[in-house]
Design a protein around this nucleic acid. Structure first.
Lengths: 347, 347
DNA sequence: TTGAAAGCGCTAACAG
DNA sequence: CTGTTAGCGCTTTCAA
């Protein structure tokens, strides 16, 4: 059990101790073929004695490989959506000998740019990004250097890249239709930052449904054409969402239902409703959450873990074949009714 | 805007294009001193033209540095406690040019061992671990090789290492005292896996308080000496916690209050209470959570982000001075009352 | 099955 | 301020 003094135990040390050449030691340590069992055992014993560990930088360099890390860029790891997504990606990538390195942008484009830069400096092998940027130049630069970039949750419009997104339009449409079917005519839409494609797509789905119902005989009484006055944006965090909810409900013609277009917004709405003891305003949220069942909150649910796993798959496939056509995967959503979306409209 | 054909653009290419030596190019690219502004600009332009990026493996190897990654081992990233902790560590480490690579063990000792092995193979610079193991041999091996290991949330007993933990005893004591003060005498304790030190310490705090109250004149009517019959362990996930809660409440002498010793257990209790429409059983949970305010849940709160940041600090300090004494940091907890812990005992 | 020599791309000394 | 000469620790030819 000889414990080495400190620092560098190299393959050369192991080879010397085992009485073999450097190359033989390398073969044994890397589990390659063409090594007599006896020799291998001798080398492995020496390695273990010396507490030897391959120097991964040297190994990668000699092999001509940039690195074994995939960068994952998210908005905020404290948001379970991102955390679960990252975990899905990590566990899928592990199967391909790839590790994940994480960075949170706090949804700030500036910070995201710094992050991407950092990843580049670390020579990551590929990047999976839930980007909050509108211009994706830094990612384009990575792509040009042969580093695959896969976008999750939000697909870029200024870049041709593999992307995996949710069926935001369908999800929002389902939510709106559900509330309309419940008799609601004044439905508020709580949106995220206007620059995010998720916000826009969810608003599109909502808009399509509301427009179709406006003045329509199918939904009697029909939706008034001023439904757009109940659309709000910028509710990215719970605090803002709560404030906006309060303003909506305090208005002359308050909504009878709210569609919160992401989990942070839903949290804010719930806080405000709880604060005022409001148990009549209907609510549907985009994104499921742990306590939704306990609180009886109807949501548009989806599978964040699958999203991460699929992103990892796209990374692996592009790594294998850099010139394949880019792929856009759209993951389904489903409405889960739990009560809050089924509250009847106030008279 | 010459875009390189593919693959390897090396510093040599940049140097050639800029008409300087390799070393000068290196200096410029690394922002070192002793380079004429004009020369630097020339090199940087060439680098940018070629889309050059330093090969970090080569750079680290030449510098004699193992890597710039710190491994963070957690139980489950989907648990916000770990996610926030990881984020705290990451943001603190970034200030020291260190990146984070993540792995989840799912609280399985076997999987954790695989993870640690993987980190070793990646030559991480240091490791921050919320370990679910009872024997920490793999971490000891890392330490021997000069890789600092900092334990978070759970300190090892079989290893001398920097650790940062919560005041579990104090937190549990506060919870128990609060419920006792509210008149409860039959208080259930929902514990995690028995092997986890957090479980044991929280149980210790609970035990100390209950023992002190048993038969004491200070708490009249005094606690019966059979209070231990309401202690349960193994409630690591919400499903088990919900089931155990149901069993407790269905028993002949059900508890009038429950102390859930972690956030997953609290979730399970809340689900079961909601399922049965039980609004009388008092509840205090260890760990705060987003919707605790909405649900009016009294909790023992603490700062997970600070925990991660402190762990990062310990990593940096040990990296700077490997022979300093190991440090054990204990972070405070505080009771946040929101109603669920203040429900009076049923007659 | 094993080994010797030649680099991977970069940085650290030491000159100039 | 700039360049030259050696390696960092490992893997890869190619021979033996």
């Amino acid at each position: 059990m000889g414990i080495p003094a400190s620092g560098a135990t190299t393959l050369a040390d192991v080879a010397a101790r085992a009485g073999v050449s450097l190359k033989t030691a390398s073969r044994a340590v890397n589990g390659e073929q063409h090594v007599r069992e006896e020799t291998r055992a001798k080398v492995l014993a020496a390695a273990s004695d010396l507490g030897f560990q391959l120097n991964s930088s040297a190994s990668l360099l000699a092999r001509g490989i940039a690195s074994s890390f995939v960068g994952v860029v998210t908005g905020d790891l404290a948001n379970p959506f991102y955390a679960v997504l990252a975990q899905g990606a990590a566990s899928e990538l592990r199967a391909h000998q790839l590790s994940v390195t994480l960075g949170s942008s706090d949804e700030s484009a500036a910070q995201e740019e710094v992050l991407v830069d950092e990843l580049a400096r670390r020579s990551v092998r590929a990047v999976i990004a839930a980007s909050a940027m509108t211009s994706h130049a830094p990612y384009a630069a990575l792509q040009r250097r042969g580093v695959p970039v896969v976008f999750v949750d939000r697909a870029p419009t200024d870049l041709d890249a593999d992307s995996i997104v949710l069926d935001n339009v369908g999800g929002a449409r389902a939510a709106a239709e559900h509330l309309l079917a419940g008799g609601h005519r004044r439905i508020a839409f709580l949106g995220d930052f206007e620059r995010l494609p998720t916000y826009r797509e969810r608003l599109d789905g909502f808009t399509a449904t509301m427009d179709a119902a406006t003045g329509s005989a199918a939904t009697a009484p029909s939706v008034a054409s001023d439904w757009r006055e109940l659309v709000r944006e910028g509710a990215h965090d719970p605090e803002v969402a709560a404030r906006v909810t309060g303003e909506l409900l305090d208005a002359a013609h308050p909504p009878t239902a709210i569609f919160a277009s992401n989990n942070r917004a839903t949290l804010g709405v719930l806080r405000e409703l709880a604060r005022r003891g409001d148990t009549t305003t209907a609510l549907v949220g985009f994104d499921d959450f742990d306590l939704a069942e306990v609180l009886g909150v109807t949501v548009v649910a989806h599978d964040a873990r699958a999203m991460g796993a699929q992103a990892a798959r796209l990374v692996v496939e592009r790594l294998a074949d850099p010139r394949r056509d880019t792929e856009l995967v759209r993951l389904p959503t489903r409405l889960v009714t739990r009560g809050s979306g089924e509250r009847p409209p106030r008279a």
